[in-house]
């Protein structure tokens, strides 16, 4: 799901492809970098128990709880690092926390 980017610097890029001053002109392109493989634990959302209070959404350090039309969706496992902060704040025990395979 990599978006159209203005610059495409790969590991084998030469200095000529880089912009002066090391500028990065694709604001927010860190999204393309996946941190999901950092997880040793995995949050599991239980939609049946979820009351959509949204308390889990703002406390995620990795912006990995997408919300659409006022309702949370399943985790963005490309970026979730499995810290478990969302698990602890959920007042309705609607997030399980299991070992990552």
């Amino acid at each position: 799901m990599t978006k159209e980017r203005k610059m495409n610097i790969r590991e084998d890029a030469s200095w000529k492809e880089m912009l002066q001053g090391g500028h990065i002109i694709d604001a927010g392109n860190a999204e393309d970098f996946k941190t999901g493989d950092w997880r040793s634990m995995r949050p599991v959302w239980l939609p049946d128990k979820c009351k959509q209070c949204l308390l889990c959404w703002p406390v995620c350090p990795d912006m990995a709880i997408p919300v659409e039309n006022g309702k949370r969706k399943d985790f963005d496992f490309d970026h979730c690092k499995g810290c478990g902060i969302c698990v602890e704040v959920c007042p309705f025990k609607a997030i399980d926390f299991v070992e990552e395979e």
């Binding site: 927010g28 860190a30 999204e31 393309d32 970098f33 996946k34 941190t35 950092w38 997880r39 703002p58 406390v59 995620c60 350090p61 990795d62 912006m63 990995a64 963005d76 490309d78 970026h79 690092k81 499995g82 810290c83 478990g84 902060i85």
Partner: peptide
């Protein structure tokens, strides 16, 4: 601010920033 940054899992700083 987007995901894909390299702060440790569970770091408080990105919560503050966002």
């Amino acid at each position: 601010i987007t995901g894909g940054h390299r702060m440790c899992a569970g770091c408080g700083a990105p919560i503050v920033v966002r």
